[in-house]
Write a protein that binds this DNA or RNA. Structure first.
Ligand SMILES: Nc1nc2c(ncn2[C@H]2C[C@H](O)[C@@H](COP(=O)(O)OP(=O)(O)OP(=O)(O)O)O2)c(=O)[nH]1
Ligand SMILES: [Mg+2]
Ligand SMILES: [Mg+2]
Ligand SMILES: [Zn+2]
Length: 579
DNA sequence: GCCGTTTTCGGCCCGACTGTTTTCAGTCG
């Protein structure tokens, strides 16, 4: 329920902002509500839990005022202030405002001048040509409006944000295509994808080119295969809808603005606003074209790091650019060194054809070695998962022999491990056999929807069993498909820390479990994080890259990630804990 | 409403695209 609950709170704040805007409230107050809504939406933890413990103001952008309104919403199911504003307005007006291309002014205009308050009425009026005589309206706007409403209806059903991996694959293909167009001097993706958000709203692509070449490049983009709709095209910017339903924005800037444009287009919006505000205080102006002094002279622009340095900051990894303290850290020269893919020496969760994997032990070992891993753990499912032919004691002993033989032959350290089920009562499947194994991931696969207290007890019991090395995909969430299990993560983290058990950041694209917020909690609790692919085929060994992005967003350095250590160090860590 | 080594008061980013505009407002990123 957590994701849903946070989203519902964020939506209530967006509505509150809209209602205030319609009611004529000061624009900066409206902006504050919208900013708080973004902060809540991007907050990976349990907002309701924060509210209970009076810690809402820890979220940047949420102060006492918004905290009070959130608590009211959670306690009573509504915000009285919003309801009072709503009562003064016709129902439907908010929907109207949220149509693409329609904002405050137009909604007010059609309401007051034409008595239109719903999307249906607006569509009808446009069809009948009853809008064209309004100020700043015309036939063309009527046509556009009809198309926009149709598109909005169609897209209302489709999921809006896409998982990071899906967006990355699509963006890399697009960048590859654009890069070979003559005149393209540089091309990369920016936006939430470059920041490695777990979900991505659209693709933001940046190109450096001369202004003479720009129109031809944008034409190529607008007519590329896979583009189903052109949303807009100007001198420097083109927006399209791709066949998967995702929107893509292309921005073309001169080479001398590449760094500033990359900075701008990478965001986040709140990071941009914060750093630009800082620049203003230093009598500087930052835009996508560069940094300019009070005489209008350009002092940076071609290089992204130089843009930050020009306003007294240092370059910072895109994953940190969320206005969650990175600007202050940069000012104090206290930015963390973040973990990188190349730091990962091993991969401690994967499956083979013994259970539900598609590749053999041999192939997995060879592929992992080729990918630069110096060790891996083979962790097939345990006996209770009969539908994937979970491993029995006998088969595990057989597999261990094969692992030893393969290890010799392939020249990569292999740990004979298991992904053992945490049963409903918190005991471990194959409990009496786990001591024979060299790496034990403990995971919940069945009965994911227990009451919060029961689930917490169940997981804590498994952690305290002394039989597991790492808690696998701790919340069980799957993006867009399954909400995280309810449990008290504070209690779970404390149990992990006490027992010396690691926590997994499962890098499988739809899992990314734990998420960035829980990964941060783990770091603060001193619980080592393991980045694992949970690969079910050789191809999926590459999933680690997605989890690295999430780990970096959680401000994790190599020292916080267990599988940055060598096989020997890992074994030492394990023995030390087992005492 | 939020926030803070220039502020607990007084600020709060900046530019592109569209349609209708004869100089710009509205919306969006
Ligand atoms: N300075 C400034 N930059 C903005 C603003 N809105 C958006 N940007 C920049 C930062 C964003 O990361 C970038 C791309 O905009 P998007 O709307 O695509 O946002 P983003 O990619 O961050 O998130 P998304 O996953 O697409 O919802 O443009 C703004 O109001 N001001
Ligand atoms: Mg985007
Ligand atoms: Mg965008
Ligand atoms: Zn699993």
């Amino acid at each position: 329920m957590r994701g849903v609950e946070n989203l519902a709170i964020a939506q209530a704040l967006v509505d509150l902002a809209d209602l205030h805007e319609l009611g004529g409230t000061l624009p900066f107050k409206v902006r504050a509500f919208r900013s708080a809504a973004r902060a809540i939406e991007g907050f990976g933890g349990n907002v309701a839990e924060l509210a209970r413990t009076e810690r809402l103001a820890e979220v940047r952008g949420v102060g006492d005022g918004v905290a009070r309104r959130i608590k009211e919403l959670l306690e009573t199911g509504k915000i009285a202030e919003a309801e009072a504003l709503r009562a003064k307005l016709p129902p439907g007006l908010l929907d109207l405002m949220n149509l693409p291309g329609i904002g405050l002014k137009t909604a007010q205009q059609v309401w007051q001048e034409r008595n239109i308050t719903t999307v249906d009425e607006l569509e009808k009026a446009a069809h009948e040509g009853r809008l064209r005589d309004l100020p700043r309206f015309g036939e063309k706007r009527e046509e556009k409006l009809i198309a926009a409403i149709a598109a909005w209806r169609k897209r209302a059903a489709a999921p809006k944000r896409r998982p990071l991996a899906e967006a990355m694959v699509a963006a890399e293909a697009l960048v590859a295509k654009l890069s070979v167009i003559p005149g393209v001097l540089a091309c990369d993706y920016a936006g939430s994808l470059r920041r490695r958000s777990e979900t991505v709203g659209d693709l933001d692509i940046l190109v450096a080119a001369s202004s003479e070449d720009a129109p031809r490049i944008m034409d190529a983009f607008a007519t590329a295969p896979g583009v189903v709709e052109l949303l807009g095209k100007g001198d420097t910017k083109t927006s399209v809808v791709l066949d998967g339903g995702m929107q893509a924005d292309l921005r073309v800037v001169p080479r001398e603005s590449w760094g500033a444009a990359l900075q701008y287009f990478t965001g986040s919006k709140d990071h941009n606003v914060a750093m630009r505000t800082l620049a203003v205080k230093k009598k500087l102006k930052v835009s996508e074209y560069g940094v300019f002094d009070d005489q209008g002279a350009k002092i940076a622009g071609e290089d992204e790091a130089a843009v930050y340095e020009a306003i007294g900051l240092t370059w910072m990894p895109p994953e940190l650019r969320e206005n969650r303290g990175e600007i202050e850290a940069s000012q104090k020269a206290a930015l963390p060194v973040l973990v990188e893919l190349s730091d990962l020496k091993g991969d401690l969760h994967m499956h083979t054809t013994e259970t539900d994997g598609k590749s053999t032990l041999d192939d997995m070992a060879a592929a992992a070695k080729a990918a630069g891993r110096s060790y891996i753990a083979i962790t097939d499912h345990s006996e209770t998962l009969t539908f994937v032919r979970g491993m029995t004691r006998e088969r595990l002993r057989e597999q261990k022999k094969k692992i030893r033989e393969t290890e010799q032959r392939q020249g990569i350290r292999l740990f004979a491990g298991i992904e053992a089920d945490i049963l409903a009562d918190g005991t471990m499947d194959l409990a009496d056999h786990l001591g024979e194994l060299e790496w034990v991931v403990g995971s919940v696969h069945q009965k994911l929807q227990m009451p919060r207290d029961e689930m917490t007890k169940r997981v804590v019991r498994a952690i305290e069993s002394g039989k597991i090395d790492c808690l696998g995909h701790p919340t069980g969430r799957q993006l867009g498909q399954r909400e995280p299990s309810e449990m008290d993560m504070e209690v779970v983290m404390a149990a992990l820390a006490k027992a010396g058990v690691a926590i997994e950041l499962n890098c499988s694209p739809l899992r990314l479990d734990v998420n960035e917020h829980l990964a941060k909690m783990a770091r603060e609790a001193g619980v080592p994080v393991v980045l694992s692919s949970d690969a079910h085929s050789v191809r999926e060994l590459a999933y680690l890259r997605y989890g690295v992005g999430i780990a970096r967003r959680a401000w994790l350095g190599p020292e916080h990630v267990l599988n940055t250590r060598s096989a020997e160090q890992l074994q030492a860590w394990r023995t030390e804990r087992r005492g």
